[in-house]
């Protein structure tokens, strides 16, 4: 491992200034992904700016259109967010997504912002001896024609076929959250639907953030669909495994007719995939299993698969139907 300078940031603005001014600097928060990458030789920064002790650890209510929103500090740990009474009551998909990820130990350590910025678990990205356009631009993609079981089925490019690993990001994308970002030129807000990128010809860029931008908070707006929401994850093991596919869904029903619906998918693309075509198809319709399957089918037009990952298409369609019909039947508590 390359020699590393370490600085503990005094405040968010100086952390941003330090990292912005040094191309080979990285923020360190919970460290569960970055420290692993240092060991694996996936990244070799010269300077670590530790933001883990910045006072970005509050969960606060704020007045929002239609009710009370929740502002979550970037350093709020995954376990604390999952157990927060307001999240459990009004944004249950967020709790469910967090609890479906990692282990009890890691959830105590991993932060809200760090969870969103974790990097892909593509086996080639994590193996520094193989070509990977995300890790080393221009070297090629080993997953194209290689071990393809986890590969994306939507929005992939010839340069990168991997998927985003976060569960939390999928729930936040479904529920219209936004991130608050501090950069050298001040604070701005980015909707979750616009934070992560498709790979295109720059798979080295996971998000639209500039080097030195620091996520300081996540804002969760209230909605009826958020209050009746859940997260359904399919994986190889019953616990402590990344998603094969996952679905965050929220429903607002008028009788059995869909007034509002939110659907986002994990495990299928380079970013959390907001299924807007499926949502549009379902609004105003009776919520039946057939209707959800048909809506998911629409969203999956244009999916590209190989023999190894073709299973993801029926799996995401059926998992979406399961999540929505269980929500409609009141089978998932909160």
């Amino acid at each position: 491992m390359r020699e590393l300078e370490y600085v503990r940031a005094d405040d968010a603005a100086s952390a941003v200034a330090l990292v912005s001014g040094e191309p080979e600097a990285r923020f360190l928060a919970g460290g569960t992904n970055l420290v692993d990458h240092l060991k694996l030789g996936i990244t070799a920064p010269r300077l670590l700016v530790d933001v883990s002790r910045l006072p970005l650890d509050a969960v606060e209510e704020y007045d929002a259109p239609g009710g009370t929103g929740l502002r979550i500090g970037a350093n709020v740990r995954n376990s604390d967010l999952a157990a927060h009474p307001a999240v459990r009551a009004s944004w249950p998909a967020v709790s469910r997504a967090l609890l479906a990820g990692a282990s009890g130990q890691i959830r105590h350590q991993a932060t809200t912002a760090g969870n969103l910025l974790q990097r892909t678990r593509c086996v080639y990205f994590q193996d520094a001896t193989t070509p990977c356009n995300k890790r080393e631009p221009g070297t090629g993609c080993s997953a194209v024609g290689g071990y393809a079981r986890y590969n994306a089925v939507l929005g992939a490019s010839p340069d990168c076929v991997t998927v985003h690993p976060s569960d939390l990001a999928v729930a936040l994308t479904a529920l219209d959250a936004q991130v608050v970002v501090l950069g050298v030129s001040g604070e701005r807000r980015i909707p979750m639907t616009g934070l992560h990128r498709l790979p295109g010809d720059r798979p080295d860029l996971d998000t639209v953030l500039e080097h030195g931008d620091l996520i300081t908070a996540v804002e969760l707006p209230p909605s009826a669909a958020a209050r009746r929401s859940t997260y359904q994850k399919a994986r190889d093991r019953a616990s402590y495994a990344f998603a094969l596919v996952s679905v965050a869904a929220g429903l607002e029903l008028d009788g059995d007719v869909v007034r509002d619906v939110r659907i986002a998918w994990g495990g299928v693309a380079h970013r959390p995939w907001r299924a807007t075509r499926a949502e549009d198809a379902l609004r105003g319709q009776q919520l039946t299993e057939e209707a959800v399957l048909a809506a998911a089918e629409l969203e999956l037009e244009g999916a590209t698969t190989t023999d190894q990952n073709a299973y993801k298409v029926p799996m995401i369609r059926n998992t979406t139907a399961l999540a929505c019909t269980r929500l409609a039947a009141g089978e998932v508590s909160r």
């Binding site: 569960t32 130990q105 105590h108």
Partner: peptide, 12 residues
């Protein structure tokens, strides 16, 4: 709280 020590830099 229970916590891993392998994915943690001591200095932090």
């Amino acid at each position: 709280r229970r916590h891993l020590t392998c994915l943690a830099l001591a200095v932090s």
